[in-house]
Design a protein around this nucleic acid. Sequence first.
DNA 1: CACGGTAGTCGACACCCTGTCGAGAGCGTC
DNA 2: GACGCTCTCGACAGGGTGTCGACTACCGTG
Lengths: 225, 225
Amino acid sequence: MAAPLSAASGPGPASSRSRRARRPSGDDRERAILATAERLLEQRPLAEISVDDLARGAGISRPTFYFYFASKDAVVLALLDRVVAEARALRAEAVRGSALGGDVRENWRAALGAVRDTFRAHRALTAAATQLLAHSPEVRTLWAQVMEGFVTETAAAIEAERARGAAPAGPPARDLAVVLNWMNERVVQVTLAGQQPAVAEEDLIDVLLTVWLRAIYGTDDPTGR
Amino acid sequence: MAAPLSAASGPGPASSRSRRARRPSGDDRERAILATAERLLEQRPLAEISVDDLARGAGISRPTFYFYFASKDAVVLALLDRVVAEARALRAEAVRGSALGGDVRENWRAALGAVRDTFRAHRALTAAATQLLAHSPEVRTLWAQVMEGFVTETAAAIEAERARGAAPAGPPARDLAVVLNWMNERVVQVTLAGQQPAVAEEDLIDVLLTVWLRAIYGTDDPTGR
DNA sequence: CACGGTAGTCGACACCCTGTCGAGAGCGTC
DNA sequence: GACGCTCTCGACAGGGTGTCGACTACCGTG
């Protein structure tokens, strides 16, 4: 059994996933492990990377690796923490921007695009995280929190649009938000991984946006505020 | 490296995934392995089931297991083959029923419900298949074929609705079909696995159906034929 | 400057799992 | 009764994980 990791802390600055408080030299090692993981993930899937590979790549022995991280998965989790924080921040920024007004369609597009861009910039990590999602409770918890954040934000936006009469009534806003966000998650992941059947990468946001707008407003051209 | 499995054959009756042509006694053994896998999957995730567990459960030794299946994954693939065939058949039946006329909304609901029902009846296997999807090329290929079939069917239906003037123009029908089907896949899977954020199981089809109808027709109440 | 504590390091070990090889056992058939 | 076939498994090789205990290097303190 792997030693328990510190649970992902709630909202706030990205928490340290490392096992130890950082030390001058230890900090370098930790970064080296992270960098090695990122590099190797560009070359082959996570399942084909061993702790030994990570340790050697960082210039340390296998037991020493365990001084820094509890497992291979914990390394990916640490990497994912950073990317996830980036995605959250960018999406939140897009949503904040929308609150100031502007074209409704473009506002939604910005929110969708922010997430797509973040994960596109880290394809290899995204693929690894997808694998871990299947069998790492820690990753599943982190991801559930991320999705929950997106869903809550989306549901609030839908309710605001209904309140101002721009969007028609329908299923509970949260339910709509849940299925739309999972749609995006899956389709972005499939597209970035090059799986089939997929939509061409350049059409992705357009198609998703159409579904979002029709699902929320019933039309491709919601009225601005 | 695992010995290569016979590739999933195209459309047609479910192909045999077993390594050998069936023999009187060998056939029983094969069934015993399959049954053991199904039973153990109800108790714990695939990653925590070893080939030895499967072999012991079927009353044979580990090496003997390899006479029947090339790997643990091949067993799940064989199980999945059956469930997938069931899902395809039920959905195709629902789609065929739609071609005869009837309420448009109910027709779409039947297609969505068919898939949900099949996988709900095999929760444990669905969870295992999801794990394998991440690292088994064979499962990925099989699943890609299934999704491709759903997408093609859906796209044809959308085009038919557009042709008869019931559905407005919009993104390419296939693109719409791709994102809607992946949405269903992901949301059904998340819901069946009890992950968060999710929609209550009894509301699932209603919410999905609303998104499908709004995305395809722009309204919750498409006109019948 | 010695000296004790702490961070950091790794060789060796125990363990678990996979997949294969080769020697057989049972059994129908000529 | 011996050949060939399916089927079986003990034993092995290999690779992975995580841990333990001894060791080193360094840093602050008296």
